[in-house]
Design a protein around this nucleic acid. Structure first.
Lengths: 123, 123
DNA sequence: ACAGTTCGATTACAAATGTAATCGATTGAC
DNA sequence: GTCAATCGATTACATTTGTAATCGAACTGT
């Protein structure tokens, strides 16, 4: 099932480290946004129902853990994003970051590596 | 305002060429998905209300045109996507594509150009 | 000139989403 | 031992989204 934007913020906080209690998640999010504790708990519940996370009991509270891996999630989302916004083409996406001057040396190095790997496989 | 996924499909079809009538949009989309004509028209109406597109009258029908440019849209969406999914960092995103065999020769060529442009600007 | 089609406008309606509040059980502080 | 704080569960409720159907005006084919 689809993870909503709000849910994703919670999931991102959980990926930082887990297992993790609800109130700890609330604390992690407090730095970034002003959400009521109740809201965060609702979102945790929805993530459980969507089987994106699970929990084990620790006394009367729950300790949550992700059920989906961040890398897998990023990969699927990237593919869908690329299809929706760029018609599935990678290079316009990168070009768009280039325009925004968001590319750092690190990114360029990584691109070079990707290119050379690709060329190794395709000739 | 936020453009929804369905609305974006319509907007993508409109970006192909415009001004463009509703029924022409319906035709363009027919190749990709099975939407009722009514659905497409609803979405056009919502895009107008969101000020993403506009129209001029041509007899009793409307000819639509985008109000936002595709490149601008792609750029903002890319940035938001990066923030949401990758915490704003480009290189993990790029790495994620390396795995997916989404790169074509043309992408590689363009990536090389992006790199050399970048290096021209940064040394 | 009348019937069927086609236009845009308006209305429909269930599911998802954002953002909580309430409720009953439990626990911790005094 | 009692009262307040806290836990998860359940309920709330407006807005957005997906996906149309209906309605009245206009046009088209015959």
């Amino acid at each position: 099932m689809e993870i909503s934007k709000s849910e994703l913020k919670v999931l991102n906080a959980l990926w930082q480290s887990y297992p993790c209690s609800a109130s700890e998640i609330v604390d992690r999010l407090d730095n970034q946004l002003e959400w009521h504790e109740k809201t965060v708990k609702t979102l945790l519940g929805r993530l459980v129902k969507k089987q994106a996370i699970s929990f084990q009991k620790d006394g009367r509270r729950y300790l949550y853990s992700p059920l989906i891996e961040q890398k897998d999630f990023q990969q699927t989302e990237s593919k869908h994003f690329l299809d929706r916004i760029f018609g599935g083409r990678v290079s316009p996406l990168i070009a768009s970051f280039a325009n925004q001057e968001k590319l750092k040396q690190e990114d360029i190095d990584q691109l070079k590596k990707i290119i050379s790997d690709w060329e190794k496989d395709n000739d």
